[in-house]
Every structure is written in C-alpha cells, then in structure tokens.
Amino acid sequence: MNFSEQLRKENDDLFQMIFAHPFVQGVGKGDISKEALAHYIKADYEYLNAFMQIYGIALSKSQDREDIAYFFDQIKFVLHDEIHPHRNFCEHIGVEYEALQGHSLPPTADHYIKHMMYHAQMGSSGEIIGALLPCPWTYLEIGKKLVEQYQPDESHPFYDWITFYTGEEIEHTTNELRTRLDRFAKQSSLEEQEKMKEAFRKSCQLELKFWEMAYTCEEWPSAEKGNR
C-alpha cells in the first residue's frame, strides 16, 4: 500500500461523512436551498482564489520543470474551468455569478484557507500537497457516488456540477497530486510523513466542515444578528 492509499484508508471515516452530508445529498437529490447554494459559491470562489495562490507557492518550491509545468497548468485549470460548476449553481438559483464574488469569508472557509497557507509557507512540498489533495479527491469521489446513487441525466438541475466532478480533469488532478505525494513521502523522514498526514487529515476535516458551513449559512458572530 503506497502512502496516498494509506491516507485514504485512514481518513475513510471523513470521506463517508462527506458523502452523507445533507448538502452533498441535496445536490444528488436536486433539492437544496438557494441560500445554501449562494453561501457555498461566495465562499468557494474565494477558496479557489487561495487554492491558485497555493499552487503558485508549490510551483515556486518545485525542483524540476515537470512539476513547474504541472502546477502552472493547474492554476489555469482552476482559473478557467472550475467556474463551470459554480455557474450551474448560479443558473439554478437565478443569480449572476459576479454578484456572488468578492464577499467576506465565513469562519470555516477562513480557517481552511489559513490552514493551507500555513503548510504552503512553512512546510515542505509534500506538506503542501497533503493539504491540497483532499479537495479534488473528495470532489471526485462525491461525483462518482452521486452518479452511482442517483444516476442523474441531463434533466437533473445539477447534472453539469456532478458530471464536472467525475470528469477526466478532476481524476487527472487527483492522480497527479497522489503520485507527487507518494514520491515525496518516499524521500521523507517519518517525522515529515507525519506532517503530511496531519495536513491531509485536517483538510479532510475542513472539507466536511465546508459543506456544513454552506448548508447552515455560517456567519461570524455579531451583535447585530443577536449573537453574544
């Protein structure tokens, strides 16, 4: 069993909780509130901006041209292609995509980005990939689970979202990141491997919390909202 396979096994509890989350299941059923979808898009737009920046840090720490080219291509993919599932949600709720951009991050998304930035700035290339990998990997498996469970056709309101995350690009991203993580793990000490594991698990935990954040329309505590 290679390193990434071991990580997937060790974190299956979190993957299963993600699959069962009411937001994810709501996507599969085609039944989720417009407020939750809008909250998700606002946070995910900013999250993906940060994701590209972290790819840029990974690129700057790369030692060979193959890795540099890979991370460069991934920045382009997030920038130009990963807007399509957002637009699917926007069309469903009848809101212009641009109206959901530039909003403040809710607590969980803020925490998630700072977690990844910490590992990007302070950690090794293996740590960076450990923090990045759960995002594409969980989405890839979510897409496959929803296809298996609900067998959506083109009449499904979130057909484009679901099929995007079962597409070749997401699978390619996941597999390439796994390959790189396995390579770095082989070259690393046990102490460094533990840091990779910690980064990976916390990102899995925050993926789950991200869905909950969107579903509950999480916001910062505020006296104006009756919170103390």
Rank of each mutant, 00 (worst) to 15 (best):
I113S: 11
K144R: 15
G123S: 05
D153H: 07
H119N: 11
S124K: 07
P152A: 05
L140P: 00
A131N: 05
W137L: 12
D110E: 12
A109E: 13
M116I: 05
I142A: 08
I113E: 08
M116K: 11
I129L: 08
H119Q: 07
G130F: 03
P152C: 06
L140E: 14
I129T: 04
I128A: 10
A109I: 12
I129R: 04
L140C: 10
E141Q: 02
W137M: 08
W137C: 02
A109Q: 13
V147K: 13
E141V: 00
H115S: 05
S124Y: 04
G123H: 06
G130R: 09
Q151R: 12
L146A: 03
M117S: 05
D110F: 13
Y139W: 10
Y118L: 10
L146Y: 01
I113N: 10
L133N: 10
I129F: 07
A120L: 07
P134C: 08
I128S: 11
Q121T: 11
H119W: 15
Q151E: 06
W137F: 07
I113L: 09
G126C: 04
P136I: 08
I129G: 04
L146M: 06
M117C: 05
Y150G: 01
W137A: 13
L140K: 15
M117Y: 09
Q151H: 14
I128E: 11
L133H: 12
Q149G: 00
H119I: 00
K144N: 14
D110I: 00
W137S: 11
G126T: 02
A131L: 05
W137I: 01
K114C: 06
P152N: 06
E127L: 01
P152L: 06
A131G: 14
D153P: 04
I142W: 05
Q151Y: 03
H115L: 10
V147Y: 02
D110S: 15
E127H: 04
